[in-house]
Simulated scan of single mutants.
Amino acid sequence: MSDTTSPTREINGVRLPAAGRWRVDPGHAEVGFVGRHFMLTKVRGRFTGVDAVIEIGERPEDSQVKAVIDVASLNSGDTTRDDHLRSPDFFDAEKFPKITFVSTSVTWDGTGGTLTGDLTIKDVTRPVTLAVEYLGYAHDPWDNHRTVFSASGRVNREDWGLTWNMALEAGGVVVSKEIELVLELEALREG
């Protein structure tokens, strides 16, 4: 059993966050994606409306993650593109305002591992596996305990019905099917 007063603990010689509930701080969360435009340029987007909880288990493998993402909060730095991404051609934010993720399994070794879970977009649920890295712990000036994680993975957007595209005259398409998911998360200890 871990010390319930300490925000961190040592497991196999590695300093990790204490077991318990940690809520993702949306002001310090990057829930982003990267796709290719004309199969060349990387286009980045992010969701700023994130409500997520990490339940860190006594054993890291027993940890769980639940997240709800507000589709309307999508921001790629271009209003016209954002409006198109929120439209029925892509996320259909009016009909499907939320994206959810619920973990199903965790593997862990040292400061990294994998997080597998069910990602639901437009009422379509598919499994996704993310590579996760624990970056560290900080006690902030406002007496909050923060833990920081980074995660990434790749998905085929068409698996969730995000199929809009246009063929290019010279070959290829306007928007890549493969999308890179990129997450940088600070979570605050609760309780």
Rank of each mutant, 00 (worst) to 15 (best):
H145M: 03
I69A: 00
R21Y: 01
S2F: 02
R81Y: 07
D123M: 11
T79N: 14
G161S: 10
Y137N: 03
I11H: 02
N12S: 13
G191Q: 09
G172I: 00
G20D: 04
F33C: 06
T8H: 03
I11A: 12
W164P: 01
V50Y: 01
R126E: 10
L40I: 15
W22D: 00
E180I: 12
G49Q: 01
D82Q: 10
V173Q: 14
M1Y: 09
L74T: 00
D92M: 03
N156D: 15
D62K: 11
V106Q: 12
P26W: 08
G27K: 05
I179D: 06
I121W: 04
G113M: 07
R44W: 09
R36Y: 10
V53K: 04
D109Y: 09
A167G: 08
L16R: 00
A67S: 05
T114Q: 14
T120K: 05
V53Q: 11
D159E: 14
D143T: 13
V132R: 13
L181D: 06
E158M: 07
L135E: 15
R157P: 00
Q64Y: 09
S152Y: 05
E184M: 05
T147A: 15
G112Y: 02
E158Q: 11
T100P: 06
L40E: 06
L16F: 00
K122M: 10
V175Y: 07
L135K: 14
T104F: 04
G49V: 03
V102Y: 03
N165M: 01
S152A: 13
A19D: 04
E184Q: 11
R15K: 15
D92L: 05
Y137F: 04
A151Q: 09
W22M: 01
R86L: 15
V65Q: 10
V102M: 07
R21T: 15
A18H: 01
A29H: 05
D83Y: 01
N12G: 08
G20T: 02
N165R: 10
L168N: 05
A93L: 03
G113Y: 09
T111G: 09
R81Q: 09
G153T: 08
L115N: 06
K122P: 05
V14Y: 02
V14H: 03
H145G: 02
L119A: 01
W164R: 08
D89R: 08
